[in-house]
Write a protein that binds this DNA or RNA. Structure first.
Length: 241
DNA sequence: AAAGCGCTCAACCGCATGCTG
DNA sequence: CCAGCATGCGGTTGAGCGCTT
């Protein structure tokens, strides 16, 4: 076991990214403890995995979510609750972390909007508490003191009806459209839900991205926007077998 | 111009689950 | 079947950045 004190924490440096990427290329994206050791990085296997999955993995989309992705997140969340990794599988190129962060941001905004609405029209009986937090049947073990914590931990499920988040989308987007996408790809099979958003890479590595199979990943093409792509440049075929 | 505030996102932690011998 | 280890998942935190006052 590694000595706690020797382990590095905090932000990754470019050099560390390069080292990690090299090792993943060599040994595959499994055996993270092994990779952590042989890479010479003073990082835990866990930390290496996280860095790879959330930042270095080829095929990750970066930047703002499209409106289609946003709607999909809302809808899937209303169905599955805080099952971020599951939701992420339906959004190729997005990580559970990203979606989780997006959701928190979204809910905070909604929370503030509601508060404002409430303040401006105190007579109206806004019952957002029930629609957001009462359905937290999933993963709500760590609810803490503040309302905000409860608020985010919605864990909404379809049985409780569409969440408020989903409801507000009514009228501007057909839920049938969304569901057609979802249902057609149900359940764990990954299919691009919006062709315009999905680069050709997904045609052949949809599964390998998240259900990482050794070997498959090494064939992936690199997006020029990839963080470590820029470290090597187009000449260096980093993932060449 | 500076300070304060809020937001975003990378990264950590702890627990759960899966795998292997 | 069980124990130990590896990996995955969800919750949480905090640094850094941009916007507002």
């Amino acid at each position: 076991m590694e000595l706690e004190g020797e382990m590095r924490k905090g932000p990754w440096t470019e050099q560390e990214d390069v080292q990690l990427a090299l090792c993943v290329n060599l040994y595959g994206d499994r055996r993270w403890d092994f990779i952590a050791k042989v890479s010479g990085l003073k990082r835990t296997g866990k930390s290496c995995r996280l860095r790879w999955v959330n930042y270095l993995h080829p095929g990750l989309k970066r930047g703002k979510m499209s409106s289609h992705e946003e709607r999909l997140v809302l809808e899937l969340h209303s169905r599955w609750g805080n099952r971020w990794s599951r939701i992420a599988r339906k959004l190729p190129g997005r990580t559970d972390n990203e979606i989780k962060n997006y959701w928190r941001t979204y809910m905070r905004k909604k929370s503030q909007e509601k508060k404002r609405t409430k303040l401006s029209s105190p007579s109206s009986s806004v019952s957002y508490n029930s629609s957001y937090s009462s359905s937290s049947t999933i993963s709500s073990t760590k609810i803490k003191d503040t309302d905000e914590r409860n608020f985010f931990d919605t864990g909404g499920v379809a049985a409780t009806g569409l969440s408020d988040a989903a409801e507000i989308q009514k009228g501007e987007y057909s839920m049938d459209e969304i569901w057609n996408d979802i249902v057609s790809s149900d359940d764990d099979e990954i299919k691009p839900v919006c062709p315009t958003l999905v680069p050709p890479i997904w045609d052949y590595c949809q599964d390998s991205l998240w259900n990482t199979d050794q070997g498959k990943d090494t064939d992936m093409f690199l997006h020029t926007s990839e963080p470590f792509y820029s470290l090597f440049g187009p000449e260096e075929t980093f993932f060449a077998g």
